[in-house]
Computed example of a mutant assay.
Amino acid sequence: METMDQVRQPGVFSHVRRSVRMTVGQQRVWETHWSELGRKLEELPAGTLDLDAWFGRTAPVVLEIGSGMGEATAQLAEAAPGVNHLAAEVYPAGLGQLMLAVEKSDLGNVRLLHGDALDFLRDHVAPDTLDGVRIYFPDPWQKKRHNKRRLVKSPFVSLVASRLRPGGTLHLATDWADYADEMLEVCTAEPLLANQYDSWAPRPSWRPLTKFESRAQVEGRVCRDLLLTKSQSTKVTPSGW
């Protein structure tokens, strides 16, 4: 297993750096609801975050890494009110848009993290904690010379697996064929995870069809899902963590 230092590879982040300005509505909801719903990574105290206290209840927790504008997050949260949904995103505009959806649908089971999810997992989530991790359409870094910047690499998958509870799931989706192949190879090699299917999973009917995915389909890119489960019988804490 890799050490903590190896998880943070040069140039590897759970996001792409770009500037997105907030709308008036997003700014309003940020000012109104952020103190209740959100946390900034750099402001979290050292050590494990008490997720039950943050949500105000004990329930299964699913972390979505790179929630974008939050359209899938909001739909999934509304469809599963008994689950605590934690959306990690670095762009305030995306978090603001998600808070607008939370406000509109009165969703009490959504919380938002502003910051890099990799650092959050490593520094603030205890092993065997999360019921699920979702990573939908991470940046493919499609130029070959940039492939090394992709998020879904062996050290990262090992970190995610360690934070899942036994029986917890990792759900990946991408519309880039070579990245899908890389995801399958890396996740299959992780000893704590077992693929729920022989290869790709059928597209789950419950995963919302976003504008992003619809555009990929129009452009002729096939979207692939990968569903993996953490072993029920193996509880491993990697050395050095």
Score class of each variant (00 low, 15 high):
25 G>T: 13
21 R>E: 13
10 P>G: 11
171 H>Y: 00
27 Q>L: 07
126 A>C: 10
98 L>R: 15
155 P>A: 15
14 S>C: 12
234 T>L: 14
208 P>D: 00
20 V>P: 02
93 A>N: 10
29 V>Q: 01
179 Y>C: 05
205 S>G: 13
178 D>N: 12
228 L>G: 10
182 E>Q: 07
88 A>C: 05
92 P>K: 04
88 A>R: 00
216 A>N: 01
196 Q>E: 12
161 A>N: 01
186 V>S: 11
161 A>Q: 08
48 T>D: 14
191 P>D: 13
17 R>P: 02
69 M>V: 11
15 H>F: 15
79 A>F: 15
67 S>V: 01
1 M>I: 14
53 A>K: 06
234 T>P: 05
127 P>A: 02
186 V>E: 03
71 E>P: 11
128 D>Y: 01
148 K>N: 06
111 R>C: 13
103 E>L: 08
187 C>R: 04
224 R>L: 12
167 G>Q: 00
168 G>F: 02
232 Q>Y: 15
58 T>P: 05
127 P>R: 01
56 G>E: 11
64 E>D: 13
218 V>R: 11
197 Y>F: 14
183 M>D: 04
107 L>S: 06
227 L>K: 14
98 L>K: 06
185 E>G: 08
65 I>T: 13
220 G>A: 09
95 L>R: 01
100 L>F: 02
194 A>S: 12
54 W>T: 05
84 N>C: 09
121 L>Q: 11
157 V>N: 06
44 L>A: 14
57 R>P: 02
184 L>S: 05
57 R>A: 04
59 A>M: 04
28 R>K: 07
219 E>R: 05
200 W>I: 05
125 V>H: 03
40 K>D: 15
99 M>D: 09
185 E>K: 12
33 H>L: 15
70 G>I: 14
130 L>W: 09
241 W>P: 10
36 E>N: 08
121 L>R: 09
185 E>S: 07
70 G>M: 09
82 G>Y: 12
20 V>E: 12
20 V>K: 14
209 L>Q: 05
117 A>T: 04
60 P>G: 00
185 E>M: 15
154 S>Y: 10
26 Q>R: 06
41 L>C: 03
240 G>N: 03
109 N>G: 14
88 A>F: 01
93 A>T: 04
72 A>T: 03
15 H>Y: 12
139 D>C: 13
187 C>T: 11
1 M>S: 10
116 D>L: 09
202 P>D: 01
89 E>F: 08
214 S>C: 09
172 L>K: 06
126 A>P: 07
139 D>W: 04
35 S>K: 08
157 V>G: 11
179 Y>T: 09
49 L>Y: 12
6 Q>G: 13
167 G>R: 12
166 P>A: 03
228 L>R: 15
70 G>K: 14
213 E>I: 02
156 F>W: 05
163 R>N: 08
99 M>H: 01
192 L>N: 00
8 R>G: 00
29 V>H: 00
78 E>P: 06
212 F>K: 07
53 A>C: 08
134 R>C: 07
99 M>G: 03
